[in-house]
Measured scan of single mutants.
Amino acid sequence: MDALKSAGRALIRSPSLAKQSWGGGGRHRKLPENWTDTRETLLEGMLFSLKYLGMTLVEQPKGEELSAAAIKRIVATAKASGKKLQKVTLKVSPRGIILTDNLTNQLIENVSIYRISYCTADKMHDKVFAYIAQSQHNQSLECHAFLCTKRKMAQAVTLTVAQAFKVAFEFWQVSKEEKEKRDKASQEGGDVLGARQDCTPPLKSLVATGNLLDLEETAKAPLSTVSANTTNMDEVPRPQALSGSSVVWELDDGLDEAFSRLAQSRTNPQVLDTGLTAQDMHYAQCLSPVDWDKPDSSGTEQDDLFSF
């Protein structure tokens, strides 16, 4: 819950932080000083300027060897085509990944977070970031790969997607708890209302004896509580940590079903599988986004697919 609360507080303090972009060759504004600060901008989305290598189908939802083989196929196909790589912007948030063309600003792909089953910074092609997700059109699994400016960037994108998945799962947990509370309150309110109706004398007997209905007592009954809980029953509950912020979080049926399955089948359902080692994760978390744009010590960066 700490990640969720800190993310909400950060967004309320400075929503404009989320509009910064990394990996864009110096076009961005001043960047936060450390990885923790940038992680807090996830709610509205972190932007990464990358190059799209392509996509291939895979048979399993996750796995280092599986993704490595898929990336190898994608890279080989991209090299064989001889075409310049498409420059894209990857927007990562707890909602998922939005992929747009840098030149036309046209939407290429919009992947809900619950469809993503794996992401990684490839070991062999260490400047490549990739994720595996279920197609929104059918049940097939797709591996999408992107060329980053350097290994640090690939690791940073991988960690960002993993963190977005974690925050999304926490949102789901909060929403589920809130819905259970509202359902319980609604049920209790309905029981109270039913009890009051059972003990209320029939209207005919009131008229016969000349008694008047006590409207004041009726007004004191917990009807307002019942209506408050039943009027918006169809509205999706939102985490309290975000009250007053500009973010509107809505959970669709697909996300609810997917996270429910994860909660039942996995020990740590909030953790998205990645190909990063503990050492890689520690190294990337210690980086400032400013470091992502620094040239690798191995030599001059080449803006070309064939540089790796």
Rank of each mutant, 00 (worst) to 15 (best):
A78D: 15
C119S: 08
L31M: 13
L53V: 15
Q139K: 12
K83P: 02
A68P: 07
V88E: 14
L4F: 08
A185Q: 03
A80Q: 02
V111P: 13
H28Q: 03
A130E: 10
T56E: 10
G23L: 05
V207R: 10
S14L: 00
G96N: 13
S260C: 01
L99Q: 15
Y114E: 04
D101Y: 14
D296F: 03
F165G: 01
I71A: 08
R13P: 14
V128L: 15
P32M: 12
I71T: 09
G254S: 09
L107I: 14
K19C: 06
Q270T: 02
V111K: 15
A10H: 03
R73G: 15
W35P: 13
A68S: 10
L107A: 04
K181G: 07
D256F: 04
K91C: 13
M124D: 09
V58W: 14
S93M: 12
V248G: 08
L17S: 14
W35E: 14
W249G: 07
A3K: 07
D253G: 11
Q264T: 04
I132G: 07
T160W: 06
P202F: 00
D214W: 09
L276D: 06
K62H: 04
E217L: 10
F146H: 07
L43E: 14
A78V: 13
P201M: 02
D37K: 09
L47P: 11
V192W: 01
N34M: 10
V236S: 04
E178I: 00
A162Q: 01
A241E: 02
T120P: 11
R27M: 13
M281F: 05
P222Y: 11
P295S: 14
T56F: 05
T100P: 15
T200W: 03
S140T: 14
Q139P: 15
S93N: 11
S246E: 07
A78Y: 05
S224H: 09
S117I: 14
L255D: 06
D256R: 05
Y131D: 11
Q20L: 05
A78E: 06
T200A: 07
Q187D: 03
G24I: 07
T77M: 14
V271F: 12
N268F: 02
S93K: 14
G299E: 05
Q134K: 15
S6L: 14
S93G: 13
S67Y: 06
R13A: 12
S6V: 12
I71G: 10
G45C: 01
M153L: 08
L90I: 13
G244I: 04
G25S: 01
L213N: 00
T158F: 01
K152D: 08
D2T: 05
Y283K: 01
A70T: 13
L4V: 13
L203V: 00
V161D: 01
G82V: 13
P15R: 15
D253K: 06
H28L: 10
L255C: 10
D291E: 02
R73C: 12
N232S: 05
K204E: 10
K150Q: 00
L11Y: 13
F165C: 01
C143V: 13
T274P: 02
L99V: 14
E178F: 06
V157D: 01
S245Y: 10
D304G: 08
Q163V: 01
G45E: 09
A195Q: 01
S307T: 03
S175F: 00
K127D: 11
Y52N: 02
V111H: 13
Q60R: 07
S14W: 01
D293H: 01
S245F: 11
E301W: 04
A156E: 06
N232K: 10
W249T: 11
K176C: 04
H137Y: 07
P202G: 11
T89V: 11
A228C: 09
S16Q: 10
S140C: 15
K87M: 11
G25N: 10
Q302T: 15
M55E: 06
V226L: 10
Q136H: 07
S6R: 09
T104P: 00
P269V: 01
S135D: 07
T56W: 13
A263L: 13
G25K: 03
V128G: 14
F169V: 13
V207T: 02
K30W: 14
S307R: 09
L305M: 07
E177L: 12
L206D: 06
T160K: 08
V92F: 14
N232V: 10
S243W: 14
A228F: 07
L206P: 04
S307P: 08
V236K: 07
P15D: 00
Q139D: 11
E216P: 02
R13W: 14
V157L: 02
Y52V: 05
S307C: 00
K79F: 11
L4Y: 11
T149K: 12
V226K: 07
N110L: 03
L4C: 04
K150G: 15
D122A: 15
A185I: 04
Q279T: 02
V271W: 03
S288C: 01
Y283D: 04
K220E: 01
L213V: 12
S205D: 07
K84D: 15
E235P: 05
Q197I: 05
A258P: 04
G63C: 15
T77I: 14
Y283N: 09
E64A: 13
Y131E: 09
S246Y: 00
T77L: 10
S205Q: 08
S67G: 15
R261T: 02
D303E: 08
H137C: 14
H125M: 07
N232P: 06
